[in-house]
Design a protein around this nucleic acid. Structure first.
Lengths: 355, 355
DNA sequence: TTGTACGCGTTATCAT
DNA sequence: ATGATAACGCGTACAA
């Protein structure tokens, strides 16, 4: 490997001069700088960041600890992180926990079970340690489900950002949570239904102890309230985020004596189930009943009818996560205005499942 | 940060001894080793891999240069790479080129255009250099489309693996291509259609100069040939991988005087278009006509009818890619049996779009 | 403006 | 079995 010494020799200068043209090119005479740059180019010199990292005690590297990189939400978040890191000249070190292979899908409370799983906790420890031994400057933890992950990670002394999850008691004294706004997204959805003339609006929620379910439910209620619409208990149902539960709950709603004309379903998967239930009863979506999803999964444009839904600001979450991580590393977070948690608004994707 | 010196002091030994218990614990007396381990635990010592990397001239780090981490194929490949790296005690350094934002979707030959795009070539250079300055031990390049990417990357002196793309003239003298088997996958699909009793089997291909289109077409032909079925030119159509072209080509096939009873469509997106065309003509899928896709996109189970398709071995490609990268790093690739290109078989996902 | 010398945290060699 | 010490490639006082 060609080093700074080789460049110095070829340019006929000392290594200090080479270092100076690389790092603060103003400190060195123009002619000398040219010679050095020429030598760098000719030798195809590539600075050794591991030596630099050792010397500077800073690697300018963000560690990503992803609960599951195959989760639908992870790639776009990581994409955002990459983008910001490129802009700020940071590198990325990646570790993956493969949560979705480990979680018990049949469990009532799969994420709590998971949090108590010895093997998973060891995996998370190992992942964190591997990253830490690479001397990352900050750590971004990407969850697979918005929930409190306090206590999952051992305490560390570098800045931390949680995204697609949050920590009430973070693992670092410098920490931030970056998430999308469940409340705003749900409100957006229901307000749209109201705007389209619906007043009998039911809801199919996710699992009842989920943060998202709570927040989205509040968005639903608030939208109704602000438009002086009644909150009808028989219109409130919950499932478990899966296709089947959307199907089941929709069947219940259909059989009501005064059925809704629109249903806000808390995720796309359950929406598909709801649509399937309608089809079975020869109820046309959206003509007889409107279905509104949440998540904007990759499949949403391709189902029949194409699903009107709420898109998550995943890319922006990644950008923001990297940005706050880097800000904390570079001590720019010291103004009191910085909130420990930021919520990024969702936006609407209108297709054809709402009339 | 606590260093090996702190541990040594606390354990009352020299740093050499601490290093020995970490790396070759057999060289040191049992009692001493215990004391050292205790000190490590008490001080929460985490080895500094950047110092180690400098000293060893090896970081045990795989660089991933992803053309687009948001492409449907990338996350599972990366997941596989992560898994193998964890097993082999390697770290991962990630860079993303965001190709899909840069490519001109309307171009006849978008990837060739891209390859000639100055800005993209600069991006790829920068990405490679960033990775190289982190002194990665090997580089894995993940494409977004199976094609020859020779000449895109500058020549380098570390092992390279190409996956979801290939290089006839790789950028390293130690290189390998890891891909799925287009030919085998297509043959699998068409043989299934034949087994289900179809003999009038049409095909909707991708863009005509695409490697995948060629290979899948050959799989189609071979399956027909091996079952003594005629190759009917009017059954051979091609599109451009997008929804609309599936729709258009299907419309043509429907209007044939002797229309097919089954269509092998070369990707899922065009399959959705084909299904849409059938619906418009009140042709029931699969009862009147069968549709077979390729890719097994996340959406495939949710369209109507759920799509029978070919699943790509993405995770295994990632595992294999990392494995060969690491093998090359550790000089285990020296047997002549190692092929420059390996193809991993696809497998079948049977749902309801084929009768 | 440019050069010399030191130290960052390791591992490995060579003594002891 | 254990310890002292020289590198690894770089950035930066400080000297010139």
């Amino acid at each position: 490997m060609v080093t700074i010494h080789d460049v110095a020799k070829r340019a006929g200068v000392s290594i200090a001069t080479v270092s100076n043209v690389i790092n603060n090119s103003n400190k060195v005479a123009k002619g000398t700088a040219e010679r050095v740059k020429k030598a760098i180019y000719e030798l195809n010199y590539i600075p050794n960041n591991v030596a630099k990292g050792l010397k500077m005690n800073s690697t300018r590297t963000i560690g990503i600890l992803a609960e599951d990189i195959s989760a639908f939400s992870s790639p776009d978040i990581i994409d955002g992180i990459c983008e910001q890191c490129e802009r700020s000249d940071y590198q990325i070190n990646l570790a993956n926990l493969r949560v979705n292979n480990k979680v018990n899908q049949n469990s009532e409370d799969m994420y709590r079970d998971l949090a108590e799983d010895k093997e998973f906790r060891k995996g998370i420890q190992d992942g964190q340690n591997t990253l830490l031994s690479a001397r990352i400057s900050a750590l971004i933890y990407i969850g697979v489900h918005p929930r409190d992950v306090s206590g999952l990670l051992p305490q560390i002394y570098i800045p931390m950002v949680y995204t697609y999850c949050y920590a009430k008691n973070p693992a670092s004294s410098k920490a931030q949570n970056i998430n999308y706004d469940d409340f705003q997204g749900a409100k957006l959805a229901v307000e749209y239904l109201i705007k389209r003339g619906h007043s009998k609006i039911a809801i199919i929620g996710g699992v009842i102890n989920s943060y998202s379910t709570h927040r989205r439910m509040m968005g639903y209620q608030t939208a109704l309230m602000e438009h002086s619409l009644p909150l009808r208990p028989e219109y409130i149902t919950t499932g478990n985020w899966m296709f089947e539960s959307g199907y089941e709950q929709m069947n219940k709603l259909i059989q009501l004596s005064d059925p809704p004309t629109a249903v806000f379903v808390m995720n796309d998967l359950m929406s598909y189930g709801a649509i399937a239930a309608c089809k079975e009863h020869n109820i046309n979506v959206p003509n007889d009943i409107s279905i509104h999803g949440y998540d904007n999964q990759e499949s949403a444009p391709f189902v029949t009818p194409p699903l009107t839904t709420i898109a998550l600001p995943l890319h922006r979450m990644g950008v923001m996560a990297a940005k706050s991580a880097i800000d904390m590393v570079e001590h720019r977070n010291m103004d009191q205005t910085t909130e420990a948690s930021v919520l990024i608004p969702c936006h609407h994707v209108i297709r054809s499942s709402v009339r």
